[in-house]
Amino acid sequence: MTTAAVRRPPRAALPPAARRAKRRSTWLGLLAWAAGLLFCLPALWMLLTSLHSEPDAATNPPSLGAALTFDGYREFFGAGGGASPWPSLINSATASLVSTALVLLLALPAAYALSIRPVRKWTDVMFFFLSTKMLPVVAGLLPVYLFAKSVGMLDNVWLLVVLYTSMNLPIAVWMLQSFLADIPLSIIEAAQVDGARLPTVLARIVAPLAGPGIAATSLICFIFSWNEMLFARVLTGVTAQTAPVFLTGFVTSQGLFLAQLCAASVVVSLPVLAAGFAAQDKLVQGLSLGAVK
């Protein structure tokens, strides 16, 4: 017994306009990949240089086929008799995490008042927050230094916490206000009808719905605090020295220790990369998708 072969119908040829659109999308995709690799190239070069010895890292042009070693990382962590980076890393983590937490605690009620329950002339309030970022940071450096000296707060990590909180608070209010403005009022009104007070509404209703916005805001504030160097360089010495200030110790009068500097830069960049990786799921979620049925 034989069966007839089943033939698939031939594929319909794409019209010329569709073929041109497909080729255009292919070229745009390749261009996007090339741009992404171009932006990642400095970081990859820094990682490769950190795995070279100092003589190989200092060659011009650089040697790509040089032997790999972890001497730069061992020197960074004090194996060669240098200063330990752990106090500086702990100071940066303390200043960044505590200031970010304080910023969120202060910015969330302020953004709630300016978006969901707007006050009178709230646009003037938003402009006031924005105007605080118009003054260059270096212009306020001397008054802050004199004030810190008069109250005995120089070389104190808690002074950095206060400064980073005040510096990031306007940005956090602006970001959270735009996120909270999209929360449906019907959800908040339903919770208030059930007897929920303001702290309960903020903690159990607003914060979960604004999770992506809070994650993005906290990540921005953490990055700004972790990377800040001007105030940390001027207002701290040894006790409250942060990681960016510690990196400048690899540029000495004896020369530039390039391999150690790249190794230190890789280590100091890891917390920011880890924070971004941990918050990536929140960053892509819908703000209130499916909240209202």
Score class of each variant (00 low, 15 high):
residue 46 M to N: 06
residue 138 V to I: 14
residue 64 L to Q: 01
residue 232 A to G: 08
residue 235 L to N: 02
residue 229 M to V: 13
residue 114 L to T: 07
residue 161 V to I: 15
residue 174 W to K: 06
residue 124 D to W: 11
residue 52 H to M: 12
residue 209 L to I: 11
residue 252 T to E: 07
residue 273 L to I: 15
residue 272 V to N: 05
residue 43 A to E: 00
residue 236 T to N: 07
residue 253 S to D: 14
residue 90 I to P: 04
residue 129 F to D: 02
residue 168 N to P: 04
residue 90 I to R: 15
residue 240 A to T: 13
residue 234 V to E: 02
residue 231 F to D: 03
residue 43 A to R: 00
residue 33 W to G: 00
residue 64 L to S: 02
residue 230 L to E: 08
residue 279 A to G: 07
residue 155 D to Q: 10
residue 63 S to N: 14
residue 47 L to F: 13
residue 109 P to L: 07
residue 82 G to E: 09
residue 74 R to C: 09
residue 79 A to S: 12
residue 270 L to N: 02
residue 143 P to N: 12
residue 144 V to W: 11
residue 67 A to H: 07
residue 101 A to G: 15
residue 216 A to P: 07
residue 140 G to R: 00
residue 269 S to C: 01
residue 287 L to E: 04
residue 94 T to A: 11
residue 87 P to S: 10
residue 100 T to N: 03
residue 188 I to A: 02
residue 177 Q to V: 06
residue 101 A to P: 05
residue 14 L to K: 13
residue 192 Q to K: 05
residue 192 Q to H: 00
residue 261 L to D: 05
residue 66 A to S: 11
residue 182 D to S: 11
residue 180 L to P: 01
residue 165 T to D: 03
residue 257 F to W: 10
residue 158 W to E: 04
residue 2 T to H: 05
residue 214 I to W: 01
residue 27 W to I: 10
residue 285 Q to E: 13
residue 154 L to G: 08
residue 18 A to N: 09
residue 87 P to F: 12
residue 263 A to F: 09
residue 120 R to N: 11
residue 224 F to E: 06
residue 291 A to L: 06
residue 225 S to I: 08
residue 28 L to R: 15
residue 184 P to G: 03
residue 6 V to H: 11
residue 102 L to G: 08
residue 85 P to L: 05
residue 177 Q to P: 00
residue 145 Y to I: 02
residue 154 L to S: 12
residue 229 M to Q: 13
residue 163 L to E: 12
residue 181 A to C: 01
residue 161 V to S: 03
residue 101 A to E: 06
residue 117 R to L: 06
residue 57 A to C: 12
residue 37 L to R: 08
residue 193 V to S: 07
residue 210 A to W: 04
residue 258 L to Y: 12
residue 158 W to L: 14
residue 141 L to C: 11
residue 99 S to W: 08
residue 151 V to S: 11
residue 256 L to A: 13
residue 4 A to N: 01
residue 274 A to G: 12
residue 10 P to W: 13
residue 220 I to F: 14
residue 46 M to T: 15
residue 120 R to L: 13
residue 173 V to C: 11
residue 77 F to E: 06
residue 199 P to G: 07
residue 123 T to R: 15
residue 252 T to S: 15
residue 104 L to I: 15
residue 96 S to K: 09
residue 241 Q to C: 03
residue 64 L to W: 15
residue 135 L to Q: 07
residue 155 D to P: 02
residue 65 G to M: 01
residue 33 W to N: 00
residue 84 S to H: 13
residue 144 V to H: 09
residue 276 G to C: 13
residue 140 G to E: 01
residue 292 V to A: 09
residue 150 S to V: 05
residue 144 V to Q: 14
residue 155 D to L: 06
residue 98 V to P: 05
residue 287 L to S: 01
residue 145 Y to A: 02
residue 129 F to A: 06
residue 176 L to P: 02
residue 287 L to I: 14
residue 184 P to F: 07
residue 164 Y to S: 10
